[in-house]
Deep mutational scan, measured.
Amino acid sequence: QTIHNGDQTYHYDNPEEAIKVAQKLAKIYNLTVTVKGNTVQVH
Rank of each mutant, 00 (worst) to 15 (best):
Q1W: 02
Q1T: 12
Q1A: 13
T2F: 12
T2P: 10
T2W: 07
T2S: 11
T2E: 12
I3N: 11
I3W: 05
I3G: 11
I3R: 10
I3C: 14
I3K: 11
H4T: 08
H4G: 09
H4W: 08
H4N: 08
H4E: 09
H4K: 09
N5H: 14
G6Y: 13
G6A: 12
G6S: 11
G6N: 12
D7A: 08
D7L: 14
D7K: 08
D7W: 15
D7V: 14
Q8N: 09
Q8W: 15
T9E: 11
T9L: 14
T9V: 14
T9Y: 15
T9Q: 08
T9W: 15
Y10T: 03
Y10M: 05
Y10A: 03
Y10W: 08
H11G: 03
H11D: 05
H11F: 13
H11K: 07
H11T: 14
Y12I: 02
Y12D: 01
Y12P: 02
Y12N: 01
Y12C: 15
Y12L: 05
D13R: 10
D13Q: 10
D13P: 09
D13K: 12
D13E: 09
D13T: 09
N14M: 04
N14K: 04
N14L: 04
N14S: 15
N14I: 03
N14T: 15
N14F: 04
N14Y: 04
P15R: 06
P15C: 12
P15I: 10
P15Q: 07
P15N: 09
E16R: 06
E16P: 01
E16L: 08
E16N: 06
E16W: 10
E16K: 06
E16H: 07
E16V: 06
E17S: 06
E17K: 07
E17P: 00
E17A: 08
E17T: 14
E17M: 13
A18S: 01
A18H: 01
A18P: 01
A18G: 01
A18V: 01
A18C: 08
I19R: 13
I19K: 12
I19T: 07
I19C: 13
K20Q: 08
K20M: 09
K20D: 05
K20A: 11
V21H: 09
A22K: 01
A22F: 03
A22S: 03
A22E: 01
A22N: 00
Q23N: 10
Q23D: 07
Q23T: 10
Q23W: 04
Q23S: 09
K24L: 14
K24N: 07
K24F: 13
K24D: 07
L25W: 05
L25D: 01
L25A: 01
L25N: 01
A26W: 03
A26L: 05
A26Q: 11
A26S: 12
A26E: 14
A26K: 13
A26R: 14
A26F: 03
K27D: 13
K27W: 05
K27T: 09
K27M: 09
K27L: 11
I28V: 08
I28D: 15
Y29W: 07
Y29Q: 15
Y29G: 15
Y29F: 11
N30E: 08
N30P: 08
N30Q: 08
N30H: 13
N30K: 06
N30V: 03
N30F: 10
N30S: 05
L31M: 08
L31N: 05
L31P: 04
T32M: 10
T32F: 06
T32A: 08
T32C: 15
V33M: 02
V33W: 00
V33K: 00
V33R: 00
V33E: 00
V33S: 01
V33G: 00
T34A: 03
T34I: 08
T34E: 07
T34R: 03
T34F: 05
T34L: 05
T34K: 04
V35P: 01
V35Q: 03
V35E: 01
V35I: 06
V35N: 01
K36F: 08
K36L: 13
K36M: 13
K36A: 09
G37T: 01
G37C: 14
N38P: 02
N38L: 05
N38C: 14
N38A: 06
N38G: 05
T39K: 04
T39R: 04
T39Y: 06
V40R: 00
V40C: 02
V40W: 00
Q41C: 15
Q41P: 00
V42K: 01
V42Y: 02
V42S: 00
V42T: 02
V42N: 00
V42C: 05
H43V: 07
H43K: 08
H43G: 04
H43A: 05
H43Y: 05
